Amino acid sequence: MSDVPGGFRGQQRFRDPMAELPAEWTAPTPPQPAAPVVPAPAASAPPDPGAPDPPPYLDLSTVALLGRARRGPSTGWRKWLYWGTGRLVDVGENPRAVRHDRLVAQVQRPLRGCYRIAMLSQKGGVGKTTITATLGATFASTRGDRVVAVDANPDRGTLSQKVPLETAATVRHLLRDAEGIAAYSDVRQYTSQGASRLEVLASESDPAVSVAFSAEDYARTLDVLERFYSLVLTDCGTGMLHSAMSAVLDKADALVVISSGSVDGARSASATLDWLDAHGREDLVRNSIAVINGVRSGARRGVTKVDLNKVVDHFARRCRAVCQVPFDPHLEEGAEISLDRLRQETTEALLELAATVAQGFPGARPAGDGVAG
């Protein structure tokens, strides 16, 4: 036995490790309070004006991620100066190119549903069918959606001669088979399409067919076409009293009256407006567009006998806008129309006409100028 008092434990040969820890280490852990619960605001409670706005989401558009590419001027000496200096000198775009881009943007305005344009003239030989085909081709090539021109001439119309003939079908065949047309591919069998993507629905040209194209026929035709096309242009006959004209006017969203630069052409176009005013169509007259077609360069300079400025002023007082389409040798041929063969001046005039018509699209801004050059 050991002589050390207290025996084995009294020798303190082993120490209790817990005895040497600081007091705060061995103190009992107080209970942690639960996180305060913040009641959700009522659905009808107004937002706190002092609360900071939540951070906006990062814009993942192409412009935001890659930046806007520098295009530089697109034509003329401005373009060569831009590239010749290694893109260091940019004097800006040509004003003519800026105007062209503005017109294209106007023509390409979004359009919901179908927009119907009636092309009128009481006088033959002023280029009504030509303007119908070129305006429709301009819309089709610039917009990219479906555009169709309908020949509603009760006599033998020539609209189908302005595009390559793809089918012998006419509006009569379309009406005969109307109940079975359920898709665009169905109606496409009755139309011919040009390089511009303008489609043409021909009128009946068989002299053995004596049944007149009636108002009911036109309404049924439009019921089919407006299901598949964004724009429908109707090439009307010269007579205001033929049976289909009442339906054409009832359905029209816009009216384009075509005149030549001659005295009798201007008088006939003005008489068309007079007839419409006298038969309760004042709203169509106010929103109509007058087109002076086949204007030669001499008329613009005032060297011809007809004072074209007075003709323009007359229609500007009666219509929403006046557009002038210059004389073009390609259009004088009277055959199939190719926009690529038109003079640049004619192309720009047709684009301006299309932009003027597009100003009447639902939701479009009102025209700021009643006269288009």
Rank of each mutant, 00 (worst) to 15 (best):
S192D: 05
L231F: 06
V163W: 01
R188M: 13
L198I: 07
R227L: 11
L201F: 12
A152I: 04
A244S: 15
T234I: 14
T234D: 05
D151G: 09
Y190C: 09
I181K: 05
F213D: 06
I258F: 07
T142R: 01
S230R: 04
R220T: 13
R197N: 09
R188P: 04
V163P: 01
P164W: 02
T142M: 01
S185D: 15
E226F: 03
S243L: 11
G144S: 09
T167Y: 11
V150L: 10
A169Q: 07
E216R: 14
T221H: 04
A212H: 10
P154S: 06
S259P: 05
Y190N: 09
S185A: 12
F213G: 03
G194L: 07
L174F: 03
R143T: 08
L233C: 03
A195Y: 04
L222T: 08
M245S: 02
D177F: 10
L165A: 15
V257K: 03
L233E: 07
G144K: 00
N153R: 10
V248A: 10
V209E: 15
E179D: 14
V257N: 00
T167W: 05
A215R: 09
L233A: 08
G237R: 02
K251W: 04
L255T: 15
L233P: 05
L255I: 11
P154V: 07
L174W: 02
Y218P: 00
V147Y: 04
M240R: 09
T142S: 03
L198P: 11
A169E: 07
E204S: 14
L174I: 04
A208S: 11
S141D: 08
A183I: 03
D151E: 05
L249N: 14
V163K: 00
Y184G: 15
A168G: 15
V148W: 02
T238G: 00
L222K: 10
V248T: 14
V171Q: 01
L255F: 04
A169F: 02
D217I: 13
T170F: 07
S203L: 00
A254D: 07
E199I: 01
E204A: 11
Q161D: 13
K251C: 03
A215Y: 07
L255G: 06
D223M: 07
R176T: 15
S141C: 02
S196R: 08
S160R: 12
S192E: 01
D223G: 03
F228E: 06
A182H: 14
R220N: 12
A212Y: 08
A149M: 09
T221M: 04
L198S: 01
E179H: 13
V232A: 05
Y218D: 02
R176Q: 15
N153Q: 12
Y190P: 09
P164V: 06
R143E: 11
Y184I: 13
V224K: 10
S185N: 14
Y218G: 01
P154D: 12
L174Q: 02
A244I: 12
D217M: 15
V148D: 01
A152E: 09
L175T: 13
